[in-house]
Simulated assay, not measured.
Amino acid sequence: MPEQTGIAIVGCGFVADYYRHCLAFHPTLKLQGVWDRDPERLAAYVACWGDRAYRSLDELLADKAGAIVLNLTTPESHAAITEAAIAAGRHVYSEKPLGMTTAEAERMRDLARSAGVRLSAAPSNLLGESMQTAWAEIRRGAVGRVALAYAELDDGMVHRANYRSWLSRSGRPWPARAEFETGCTFEHAGYAITVFAAMFGPVRRVTGFSALLVPDKRTDPPLPHPAPDFSVGCLEFDGGVVARITNSIVAPYDHRMRIIGEEGSLEIREPWDFSSPVMRRGPSTSRLARALERRLPALGGKRVPMARRSPYRPGRSGPTLDFMRGVAELADAIRTGRRCRLDEDFAVHVTEVTEMIQHPDRFGRPATVRSTFAPIEPMDWAR
């Protein structure tokens, strides 16, 4: 039996079922119990999964068997729960975003360091097979010097979808109001920022733009403070790479990520799928190749062999992304005494860049990024 690290979950909403589904693939993690401020939500989760329910947040934080607190509360509650866990001497893995502002994220980082505990945050798709495979291709020079990267994070008009029927395994509805008020940038941009920053180094400047294009999301009652439903950020990295990240819940669904080098490009169709194929394409230099690229853009690529076959299996009802992999990464870093790949500096950096894209009015154009982080190591199996 592998050495196990105890974890405790705070927040039993929609995403908590995704995390719980993925727990079975991580024998080094042991769930000690769960808590939610809503007794009905807590009861439904426990009935579904059979886990122990804590009677209060204080009881959860007093249980030292839960070395890592997994913060799955609503975004506006992340800071308060994380700070309470740090004060109780617990390590924390937070769902994204770490904080709703850079100042919040920095405060949590500083508190964790003062308390001598670890702090980490989602998303963890950087640790998945697709992204690690693409990164290995870049390191070996398969597309030459990388100059440019694109990420499309368009989710379609979600407010016109039948989202009221979207229920998690324990029966929790998709939190539409919270999603619309937090905004697609804070909810989704991290899936691209974490990947590009790990590959290309810290972001140094951000030119952001955001807008609320469809104010009426057809909620009842109407949203008092709907967030921007479109944003675009142009990012300049330390190493000279430039990236463009687009987020929206207006344009049709498109999650392509493209990394363009002088000798070709890499494409990942779905950053939320650990097993999404990685395609490598050479530069189109002939007239025929350029014509095919325009008329049949899906052709001409070569599938890159995965760095390994993913041990994660979503099954019929599970997410395509192993949500628990980030928690397992933090647990392993604690056990071995190494730096976590998704550590507090990295989480602060992602938060700052995200805030600059969603709220460019708070910063200059372009905005200079203050935060930084040490180089990220690839996964051992992808070196």
Score class of each variant (00 low, 15 high):
195 V>D: 04
225 H>V: 00
232 V>N: 03
308 R>T: 06
70 L>C: 15
200 F>R: 09
82 T>C: 00
252 P>M: 08
208 G>H: 01
64 K>T: 14
189 A>Q: 04
209 F>S: 01
245 I>R: 09
201 G>R: 05
154 D>W: 07
366 P>Q: 02
344 E>D: 15
257 M>V: 14
236 E>N: 04
108 M>Y: 01
81 I>C: 14
75 P>G: 13
364 G>L: 05
154 D>E: 11
352 E>T: 08
378 P>I: 07
22 C>F: 12
210 S>P: 08
44 A>L: 12
211 A>M: 05
313 R>S: 10
307 A>C: 08
365 R>T: 00
261 G>L: 08
72 L>A: 12
365 R>I: 01
311 P>I: 00
187 E>A: 10
170 S>P: 15
232 V>T: 03
13 G>M: 06
218 R>K: 07
368 T>L: 09
141 G>I: 06
22 C>A: 14
264 G>W: 04
96 K>D: 14
213 L>E: 04
358 Q>R: 01
236 E>K: 01
97 P>A: 04
223 L>V: 09
11 G>H: 04
77 S>D: 14
369 V>S: 10
365 R>E: 06
224 P>Y: 00
50 G>T: 00
124 S>Q: 14
108 M>R: 08
272 W>Q: 04
267 E>R: 01
80 A>C: 11
276 S>F: 15
180 F>M: 01
177 R>L: 10
139 R>E: 07
26 H>M: 08
32 Q>N: 14
242 V>A: 09
350 V>Q: 05
137 E>V: 04
160 R>K: 10
340 C>T: 09
342 L>R: 08
129 E>F: 03
197 A>D: 09
60 L>C: 08
61 L>D: 12
86 I>M: 13
312 Y>E: 05
358 Q>K: 00
50 G>A: 00
167 L>S: 08
332 D>L: 12
174 W>H: 13
226 P>D: 05
205 R>L: 13
280 R>K: 07
291 A>E: 05
35 W>M: 00
342 L>H: 13
143 V>N: 14
146 V>T: 04
279 M>F: 13
274 F>N: 05
1 M>I: 02
5 T>W: 00
227 A>R: 01
227 A>T: 07
334 I>G: 13
254 D>H: 14
121 A>R: 00
374 A>Y: 00
207 T>F: 04
235 L>M: 06
124 S>I: 06
366 P>H: 05
146 V>S: 07
171 G>W: 04
117 V>L: 11
35 W>H: 12
351 T>M: 01
381 W>K: 07
200 F>Y: 01
267 E>G: 05
332 D>K: 13
156 G>R: 07
106 E>W: 08
119 L>M: 06
158 V>K: 15
101 T>D: 10
234 C>K: 11
209 F>I: 05
161 A>V: 02
49 W>C: 12
305 P>K: 03
128 G>Q: 11
133 T>Y: 01
331 A>N: 12
309 R>T: 06
152 E>D: 15
275 S>H: 06
319 P>V: 03
372 T>R: 07
108 M>I: 02
